[in-house]
Amino acid sequence: MKPFLIPLAICSGLVTGMAHAASTAELTVSGLITPMACTPVLSAGGLVDFGKISQKDLNQATATRLPLKTLTLTVSCNAPGRYALRMRDNRDGTAHVNSEIYYGLGLDTAGNKLGVYSVKFDPKQTVADTFPVTYGTESTTGGVAWRTSNTNPIDIGSRSLLGFTDVVGSTAGPSAIQNLTSTLTLEAVINAKQNLDLSVDTLMDGSATLEVVYL
C-alpha cells in the first residue's frame, strides 16, 4: 500500500490548490455621493383624470385613443448639474402593448389588460435655465452613448434616459441644468372592447414614478 500513499497525497494537494483558486472572487463597490439635489414636481399633483367613459364609445375590435392630456413638469435643483429622466411603471405587467414607452392602465375585474398610456416630452415646449433653445437627447445604454440632440418630441421610457442640452447635434448627453420646465403630453389608449369585461364599472388605474437620474 505504501507506494500509493505519495501519489495520492500529491494529487490531493493539487486538487485542493485548484479548488481554492477557483472558489474566490473579488467584489468592488463604488459610487459617488453628490451634493446635487433635484426636485421634480408635476402640475395638478400628477393626476390625469379622464372622467367617466361609456363603454359604448369604445371600439369593438380595435383600440380606442382617448383625448390628449397635458401636464407641466418642473425640475428644480440646488445647483446646475447633469441629470436625465426616466419613468417606472407602478402597474408593470398590465400594458397590452409590449414596449418600454407604454405604461399599463391596470386590469378589469376579469384580469384583462385595460390599456396603455405614453408620456411625450417636447423640447420646443421645454425651458431650461437661460438656454436660447432646448434640445432633447436620450440614451438606451444607461448613459454610455447618447442620441444626437434635436428638437423632436421624445416618449419617455422605463429603460432609457431622457435629457436636455443647449447644443444642437451633440452626442455628449445632457448639459448642466438647474431649473427646467416642460409641457408633457399624455396619450391613453383603451384595449379593444372585445378583449375586456366591461359589465361593471372599471377603474383606469395607471400609476408611474418619474425619476431624476444624476449623471
Rank of each mutant, 00 (worst) to 15 (best):
Ser207His: 06
Val75Met: 05
Asn112Pro: 00
Gly31Glu: 01
Ala110Thr: 04
Ile6Pro: 08
Leu210Ile: 08
Lys120Asp: 12
Ser158Trp: 09
Ile101Pro: 01
Leu14Val: 10
Asp205Ile: 06
Lys69Tyr: 01
Leu114Met: 01
Val29Gly: 05
Thr130Leu: 14
Leu58Asn: 05
Thr72Asn: 01
Arg159Lys: 11
Pro123Gln: 10
Gly81Lys: 03
Leu73Glu: 00
Tyr103Glu: 04
Arg147Leu: 10
Thr151Met: 15
Thr171Tyr: 01
Asp49His: 02
Tyr102Phe: 04
Ala208Glu: 05
Ser23Thr: 12
Tyr103Thr: 02
Ala176Phe: 04
Val133Leu: 03
Leu215Ala: 12
Val167Gly: 06
Ala172Val: 00
Gly46Pro: 06
Arg86Asp: 08
Ala22Asn: 05
Cys11Met: 10
Tyr83Leu: 01
His96Glu: 04
Pro67Ile: 04
Leu42Asp: 10
Glu211Tyr: 14
Ala9Thr: 12
Leu85His: 00
Leu196Val: 03
Gly45His: 10
Tyr83Trp: 15
Lys113Pro: 01
Thr137Asp: 05
Ser149Leu: 15
Thr109Lys: 15
Thr62Ser: 14
Leu180Pro: 06
Arg82Lys: 07
Val133Glu: 02
Asp89Ile: 07
Thr202Asn: 06
Gln194Met: 12
Gly136Ala: 13
Thr209Ile: 13
Met87Pro: 09
Gly115Asp: 08
Ser158Glu: 11
Gln125Arg: 09
Ser76Leu: 07
Met18Asn: 06
Ala44Val: 08
Pro174Trp: 10
Gly45Met: 09
Asn179Gln: 13
Ala25Tyr: 07
Tyr103His: 00
Thr202Cys: 06
Pro132Ser: 08
Tyr102Gly: 07
Leu42Phe: 15
Thr70Ile: 03
Lys124Ser: 15
Thr134Asp: 09
Gly51Cys: 04
Asn191Trp: 01
Arg88Asn: 13
Ala192Arg: 13
Gly104Tyr: 03
Asp201Ser: 10
Thr141Glu: 06
Leu198Val: 02
Leu215Tyr: 08
Gln60Tyr: 11
Pro80Trp: 04
Gly173Ser: 05
Gly136Glu: 12
Leu203Phe: 12
Val213Met: 09
Thr141Lys: 02
Ala188Pro: 03
Asn191Arg: 05
Trp146His: 12
Ala176Met: 02
Glu100Phe: 11
Ala208Arg: 12
Asn98Arg: 14
Ile177Arg: 10
Arg86Leu: 11
Thr28Ile: 15
Lys2Pro: 00
Ser43Cys: 13
Thr109Ile: 00
Thr134Leu: 02
Met1Gly: 01
Gly104Ile: 04
Thr151His: 12
Gly106Glu: 00
Thr209Val: 11
Gly163Ser: 03
Lys52Leu: 02
Leu71Lys: 08
Gly51Thr: 03
Leu210Met: 12
Asp108Ile: 10
Val15Arg: 02
Met204Ala: 03
Val116Trp: 10
Thr148Asn: 04
Asn179Trp: 01
Pro174Arg: 06
Thr165Ala: 09
Asp92Glu: 13
Thr202Phe: 06
Val127His: 08
Val133Ile: 09
Thr141Ile: 07
Leu184Tyr: 03
Ala61Tyr: 12
Ala22Gly: 05
Glu138Arg: 15
Ile10Ser: 14
